[in-house]
Measured scan of single mutants.
Amino acid sequence: MPVRRGHVAPQNTFLDTIIRKFEGQSRKFIIANARVENCAVIYCNDGFCELCGYSRAEVMQRPCTCDFLHGPRTQRRAAAQIAQALLGAEERKVEIAFYRKDGSCFLCLVDVVPVKNEDGAVIMFILNFEVVMEKDMVGSPAHDTNHRGPPTSWLAPGRAKTFRLKLPALLALTARESSVRSGGAGGAGAPGAVVVDVDLTPAAPSSESLALDEVTAMDNHVAGLGPAEERRALVGPGSPPRSAPGQLPSPRAHSLNPDASGSSCSLARTRSRESCASVRRASSADDIEAMRAGVLPPPPRHASTGAMHPLRSGLLNSTSDSDLVRYRTISKIPQITLNFVDLKGDPFLASPTSDREIIAPKIKERTHNVTEKVTQVLSLGADVLPEYKLQAPRIHRWTILHYSPFKAVWDWLILLLVIYTAVFTPYSAAFLLKETEEGPPATECGYACQPLAVVDLIVDIMFIVDILINFRTTYVNANEEVVSHPGRIAVHYFKGWFLIDMVAAIPFDLLI
Rank of each mutant, 00 (worst) to 15 (best):
R4H: 15
G6S: 07
G6Y: 14
T13G: 13
D16G: 13
K21Y: 11
Q25D: 06
S26N: 10
K28L: 04
F29T: 01
F29I: 01
I31W: 01
A32P: 01
N33R: 06
A34F: 01
R35L: 06
V41K: 01
Y43E: 01
C44E: 01
C44V: 15
N45F: 01
E50V: 07
E50T: 13
G53M: 06
Y54A: 01
R56W: 01
A57Y: 07
A57W: 07
Q61E: 14
P63D: 06
P63E: 14
R73S: 14
R73W: 06
R76V: 13
A80I: 14
Q81C: 06
I82E: 01
A85I: 01
L86S: 01
L87V: 14
R92F: 01
R92C: 13
V94H: 03
E95D: 14
I96D: 01
A97I: 06
A97F: 15
Y99T: 02
Y99K: 01
Y99R: 01
C105Y: 13
C108E: 01
C108R: 01
V110K: 01
D111Q: 06
V112S: 01
V112F: 05
V115Q: 14
E118S: 08
A121Q: 12
I126Y: 14
I126N: 01
F129R: 01
F129E: 01
V131F: 06
V131R: 07
V132R: 15
V132Q: 15
M133L: 13
E134L: 06
A142Q: 15
H143G: 13
H143A: 09
T145P: 13
R148Q: 07
R148D: 07
P150D: 09
T152Q: 12
S153Q: 06
S153Y: 04
L155W: 15
L155K: 09
A156H: 12
G158N: 15
R159M: 14
A160I: 14
K161G: 06
R164A: 14
R164K: 13
R164H: 08
K166H: 07
K166C: 06
A175V: 01
S178I: 01
S179I: 12
S182N: 07
G183I: 14
G183E: 05
G187M: 06
G192K: 11
A193V: 06
V196M: 15
A203N: 15
P205R: 05
S207V: 10
E208A: 10
S209T: 15
L210R: 05
L212M: 05
E214G: 06
V215W: 09
V215H: 05
T216W: 05
A217L: 14
A217R: 13
H221G: 15
A223W: 05
L225G: 12
G226D: 05
P227N: 11
E230W: 06
G236R: 09
A244W: 12
L248V: 12
L248I: 15
R252W: 05
H254W: 15
S255N: 10
N257H: 03
P258I: 07
A260T: 12
G262M: 14
S263R: 09
S264F: 06
S264G: 14
S266I: 07
A268M: 06
T270S: 11
R273T: 13
S275T: 06
S278W: 08
R280N: 05
R281P: 06
S284N: 07
D286H: 15
D287A: 05
E289H: 04
M291D: 11
P297R: 12
P300H: 15
R301D: 11
H302L: 12
S304Q: 15
T305I: 07
T305V: 07
T305H: 12
M308R: 07
H309Y: 14
P310C: 05
R312S: 08
G314R: 06
L315W: 03
L316V: 07
S318H: 08
S318R: 12
D321R: 14
D323Y: 05
L324T: 12
L324G: 07
R326S: 12
Y327T: 14
T329N: 14
K332V: 01
K332G: 09
I333Y: 09
Q335N: 15
F340S: 15
D342N: 07
L343W: 12
K344E: 12
D346L: 08
P347V: 07
P347N: 03
A350M: 13
A350D: 09
S354M: 10
R356K: 15
E357H: 15
I359Q: 05
I359R: 15
A360V: 15
K362N: 07
I363R: 14
I363F: 05
I363W: 10
E365L: 07
T371I: 13
E372N: 14
Q376D: 03
L380D: 03
G381M: 05
A382Q: 15
P386L: 01
